[in-house]
């Protein structure tokens, strides 16, 4: 099996082994790229948080991918390969523009913030006192737009591991390779992202009147 590291190397500057023709005709880059255009665009929108930047990023990613396509050893990994190129391209574009790629603030790397538990908060606040499915009823409050709003509020470095694993179905190892970070870092950020998601769901529900908290009851 081709190493996931391939996704990190391909499309960048390092030399890697070329594809070996073994008699099976390789699909054209255009055909392969078309299979992934919508998902690549969606990923770029989430990478940049800006539709205009996403358009530039998609085009630059495809240009780089086109040039490096001959280096892609395992076509079944095309999606991850494109996502890795997009991640690196965004970093290069931001650097060229003098913009900062989001990094992890030191104060968010520790245990602080780990204390909040949505599971426990729902149980304690008991927003649906007559419900037999308290936790599920809480989740049922959220429509697509609500979830997207909460998801979009998660710090980018913590949101990306969630996007790659939960939404796009990459393994954590593949996601780590795409983001060019160690697996342990990926797992840590996945946990932090999950915690921000939980906190975001609760805060959003309170702020938008989806639930009434104990404090409000007592006023």
């Amino acid at each position: 099996m081709t190493s996931v590291v391939e996704t990190r190397a391909t499309g960048l500057t390092g030399p890697i082994a070329r594809t070996v023709d073994v008699g099976v005709e390789r699909r054209s880059f255009a055909d392969v790229a078309r299979d992934h255009l919508d998902r690549l665009y969606g990923f770029c929108v989430r990478l940049t948080n800006n539709p205009s930047d996403a358009e530039d990023l998609v085009q630059e990613t495809l240009l780089r991918a086109m040039r490096a396509y001959g280096d892609l050893r395992d076509p079944s990994r095309t999606k991850g390969w494109l996502f890795a190129i997009a991640t690196n391209t965004r970093r290069d574009l931001y650097r060229a523009q003098g913009r900062q790629v989001a990094t992890v603030p030191l104060e968010t790397t520790g245990a602080e913030g780990d204390e909040f538990s949505l599971f426990e908060t729902i149980a304690i606040e008991d927003p649906f006192p007559y419900s037999d499915e308290l936790h599920l009823d809480f989740l049922r409050l959220f429509h697509d737009d609500d979830v997207r709003a909460v998801f979009g509020s998660i710090t980018s470095v913590f949101r990306l591991p969630l996007i790659l694993t939960v939404i796009h179905g990459f393994s954590c190892k593949e996601a780590a390779a795409i983001l060019d970070i160690p697996l342990g870092t990926l797992l840590s950020r996945l946990h932090r992202g999950r915690k921000q998601l939980e906190r975001g769901l609760w805060d959003y529900a309170v702020a938008n009147g989806l639930v009434t908290t104990t404090d409000e009851d007592e006023r």
């Binding site: 959220f142 979830v147 939404i167 999950r194 998601l197």
Partner: peptide, 10 residues
């Protein structure tokens, strides 16, 4: 929670 997020794929 995970399932809810996954279903909201962009």
């Amino acid at each position: 929670v995970r399932e809810m997020v996954a279903e909201r794929e962009d």
